[in-house]
């Protein structure tokens, strides 16, 4: 796997100079590679992983299982494209198994999400059924453990008692 992408995936705030040092390249080369990845659509953006619960923000999220009827020629793409237009929708996945689309939705409250599902999602033509699962606690998100106070290094100096 590309080391540059792995490094950025872990921490997008590393400076070009730091990345260049680690990858044994020049800053220019690193810049050019990032640029190429952005142009090719490999890197789609940079965002912070925020533990919103800590900011006392009213925020609720849910995972919604959708069963839908695929369209001739366009399969699931049409309905997926339709659903991802909603700004409440954070992610849309086509799944194998017991249902078709997994949709992650956020809102200011569970009530708001419930309304969204009732009024906007379940009313879409191809949607056959929905099952809404509210997220109660996020322990780990995007590869990051959220409510850990500080990373503890359990290694101890052998010199300490």
């Amino acid at each position: 796997m590309d080391r540059l992408l792995t490094l950025l995936d872990e921490n997008a705030r590393l400076s070009t100079a730091q990345l260049a040092a680690m990858l044994n390249k020049t800053e220019k080369e690193v810049e050019a590679e990032i640029d190429a990845y952005e142009k090719a659509g490999v890197i789609r953006g940079y965002k912070a992983l925020i533990n919103w619960e800590k900011v006392d923000e009213n925020k609720a999220s849910a995972l919604i299982e959708l069963r839908v009827s695929p369209k001739r020629d366009r399969g699931f793409d049409e309905i997926a494209n339709r659903i991802m237009q909603f700004e409440e929708v954070e992610s849309v996945y086509l799944m194998s198994g017991g249902y078709d689309l997994a949709v992650k939705v956020h809102g200011r409250s569970m009530q708001e999400i419930a309304m969204f599902v009732m009024r906007r999602l379940s009313t879409l033509d191809s949607v056959l059924s929905t099952a809404t699962h509210f997220i109660l606690t996020r322990y780990k998100d995007g590869g990051v453990i959220l409510n850990q106070e500080e990373e503890r290094d359990e290694r101890r100096s052998v010199l300490c008692d």
């Binding site: 500080e150 290094d153 290694r155 100096s157 010199l159 300490c160």
Partner: peptide, 26 residues
């Protein structure tokens, strides 16, 4: 006894110490 023992004892008592002192794999 190892001369750095005293030093480690101080570090051990402090809060929020960032260590780059340990000689074993992380």
């Amino acid at each position: 006894p190892s001369g750095i023992r005293r030093f480690f004892d101080i570090a051990n008592e402090m809060d929020h110490v960032i260590s780059l002192s340990i000689g074993e794999p992380d």
